[in-house]
């Protein structure tokens, strides 16, 4: 019972804090901004972990999905809605961004039916590059100069809320029939197919869910910065997300939360070092790969994120097996 109570208390405390901090100005704006970044990065890391960690594929174009969400939601709030209604309809704009990204995820999922590994990595890389150059060439959204005019709608409670939704939905997915299908594809795709797992359906779902939440993160990002341009969503951004996933640990929700938090903080702490940051970050990564190649949490999960139904294999009695098979 205790194990069930703690997460609820923490979530409630988190919500209260997320409202109280900006309301009473408990932390300065810079720190608040970093907290929101951590939330956005958790969403990005966890959604990428679904593909790279749980499914064992290697997608390197996650920022491409993020850009779709960012642009779609920004266009909706700036061009389609008045400032007053945008504030209320912001969640729907974010969802629309997620849906747009998910449609792109559908397109990327199709090559994953036939190719995997290096080849699929190249497909996602190409996707990231294509979407960036497409955005650079659409003048209606500012082309390479970028797009602005968004209100700062991504507040701390909003970011916290979306982070919780992401964690909950992805956790639910992983601890389901389809989620086990995702894991079995990582372990052995052919055996998985032969054990009746509809691998195409599972891949499609995984890509759609992953890119949906990347799009959500993009929407939040656009309404935090209030300015976006295609360069923000290039391969470097995708690499950042990859680092968070592999730092925190593949195939672990707790790992992605940890990875996103540590990485975001490190980036800020090392900011005074300027260019040296680019030396230190890769070094950290190299050490990590040498000593903990699956990341800090690598395939381990915090009990809190495991549904009660799935925690222990409480042995049930033997009955009716013959009936089942007759």
């Amino acid at each position: 019972m205790k194990a069930r109570l703690w997460p609820i208390i923490l979530i409630a405390a988190g919500f209260i804090l997320s409202f109280a901090i900006p309301y009473f100005g408990l932390l300065d704006l810079y720190v608040q901004m970093i907290l929101i970044y951590i939330c956005i990065n958790i969403i990005l890391a966890l959604s990428l972990n679904l593909i790279n960690g749980y499914m064992g594929e290697f997608s390197v174009g996650h920022a491409g999905f993020m850009s779709a969400g960012a642009y779609i939601s920004a266009i909706i709030t700036v061009k389609c809605l008045s400032s007053a209604s945008a504030a209320w309809l912001f969640p729907f704009a974010v969802i629309a961004g997620g849906v747009g990204a998910a449609l792109l995820g559908l397109i990327v999922a199709i090559p994953s039916f036939r190719t995997r590994g290096d080849y699929l990595a190249i497909v996602t890389l190409a996707f990231n590059m294509i979407i960036k150059s497409v955005l650079e060439n659409i003048d209606a959204v500012g082309g390479a100069r970028g797009f602005l005019g968004m209100d700062k709608l991504t507040t701390l409670p909003v970011a916290f809320f979306w982070t919780l939704i992401t964690i909950w939905v992805i956790r639910n997915f992983i601890y389901s029939n389809y989620g086990r299908g995702v894991l079995s594809i990582r372990e052995d795709e052919i055996a998985s197919d032969l054990m009746s797992v509809n691998t195409k359906q599972v891949k499609l779902l995984a890509f759609v869910i992953s890119s949906f939440f990347a799009g959500v993160a993009g929407g939040l990002f656009a309404h935090l910065l209030q300015f976006i341009n295609p360069r923000m969503f290039d391969i470097i951004k995708s690499t950042d997300i990859l680092i968070m996933v592999y730092l925190g640990g593949i195939g672990s929700i707790a790992g992605s939360i940890l990875g996103a938090t540590v990485y975001t903080l490190l980036l800020e702490i090392l900011r005074p070092l300027e260019i040296w940051r680019m030396v230190i970050m890769p070094l950290i990564l190299i050490f990590l790969m040498l000593f903990r190649p699956r990341g800090i949490m690598g395939l381990k999960e915090l009990t809190w994120f495991v549904p009660v139904l799935d925690r222990i294999n409480s042995n049930r009695g033997v009955k009716g097996i013959r009936k089942w098979f007759s």
């Binding site: 029939n177 894991l183 990582r186 009746s196 294999n313």
Partner: peptide, 16 residues
């Protein structure tokens, strides 16, 4: 087998 998964999960996956 799905070697990095539990015995139970190996069986549950076959229920897909």
């Amino acid at each position: 087998l799905f070697s990095d998964l539990s015995v139970l999960d190996n069986i549950r996956i076959a229920h897909y």
